Simulated assay, not measured.
Amino acid sequence: MTREMERHPDIIRMRESYEIAAANPAVQLADGLTLLAGLFLALSPWIVGFTTIETLTMNNLVTGISVALLSLGFSSAFGRTYGIAWTAPLIGVWTIVAPWLIRGEADTTTTIYTNVIVGAIIVILGLVTVGMGMTRRR
């Protein structure tokens, strides 16, 4: 049954329209910037210098890698990954609030600035990706 659904003309046409949308230079720019934001988030404890806050260091590493992998999926196979595009803005919101919600003394000036700025960038770029997916559905 799964094989039959994958060959259904409507699904094939829908995936093709998503692939055409993903080929748009503006969308490719958003995907590339999302990848860079995810990589920066993953490396931010070492770049900015808050590796002593182990809980936030691990959080930023895991969420940054997640965002980077999502952006790779969006840029390489948006027709198959558009259904999870909503997770990128959600991860961005988590990144913003994480310094206050993570156990320990994670809410320092450095961590707050880093996470709020990078989180906001991820939210905006994620919403661009979600919006592109919604536009293609119409």
Rank of each mutant, 00 (worst) to 15 (best):
A26H: 05
I20K: 09
F40V: 11
I20D: 08
L35T: 08
N60K: 09
R7L: 13
F50C: 07
A42F: 03
L43H: 02
A22L: 08
L41Y: 00
E19F: 06
F40T: 08
P45Y: 06
E19M: 12
M5I: 14
G38L: 07
L39Y: 01
I20N: 06
L36S: 02
M58I: 14
T2S: 10
G38E: 00
R3Q: 11
G32D: 07
D31Q: 01
L36K: 01
T55Y: 09
R3C: 03
S44I: 05
T57E: 04
N59V: 09
R13N: 13
N59Q: 12
P25A: 04
L56N: 02
T2E: 12
L33E: 08
T2R: 13
G32W: 04
A21Q: 05
M5K: 12
F40G: 03
N60V: 11
I12K: 09
L56P: 01
P9V: 08
T55N: 15
T52I: 14
W46N: 03
M1T: 15
A21R: 05
N59P: 02
G32L: 05
L36I: 10
I47R: 02
A42G: 05
A22I: 06
L43M: 07
E54T: 13
A30K: 02
I20S: 08
T63G: 06
L61Q: 02
E6R: 15
L61E: 06
W46V: 07
A22H: 02
I12F: 04
T34H: 02
T63M: 12
H8M: 10
L29P: 00
M5S: 14
T51Q: 12
V62P: 00
T52Q: 13
L35A: 11
E19R: 10
G32A: 06
T51M: 08
A30H: 03
F40C: 07
T51Y: 05
A22N: 10
E4H: 15
I11L: 13
E4A: 15
E19S: 10
L41V: 11
P25T: 03
V48M: 00
I20R: 12
E54F: 11
I20E: 09
W46D: 09
E6K: 14
R15T: 04
G38F: 02
T63P: 06
L33F: 08
R13G: 10
L33N: 07
I11E: 10
M14A: 14
G38I: 01
T63W: 11
Y18M: 13
R3W: 07
P25R: 03
T55A: 15
I11G: 06
T63L: 15
L41R: 02
L39M: 11
Q28R: 15
R15D: 00
M58T: 14
G32I: 05
E6A: 14
Q28N: 10
E6L: 15
P9S: 08
H8V: 12
L33D: 05
Q28K: 12
L43V: 06
V27A: 07
T51L: 06
I11P: 01
T2L: 13
I47Y: 00
T51K: 08
E54N: 09
L61M: 07
N24Y: 03
E19N: 12
R3K: 11
I11D: 07
P9H: 09
M5A: 13
A21H: 00
I53Q: 12
P25L: 05
V27I: 11
A23H: 06
E16K: 11
Q28H: 07
M58R: 13
T57M: 11
E6T: 15
M5D: 13
G32Q: 02
A22Y: 00
E16P: 01
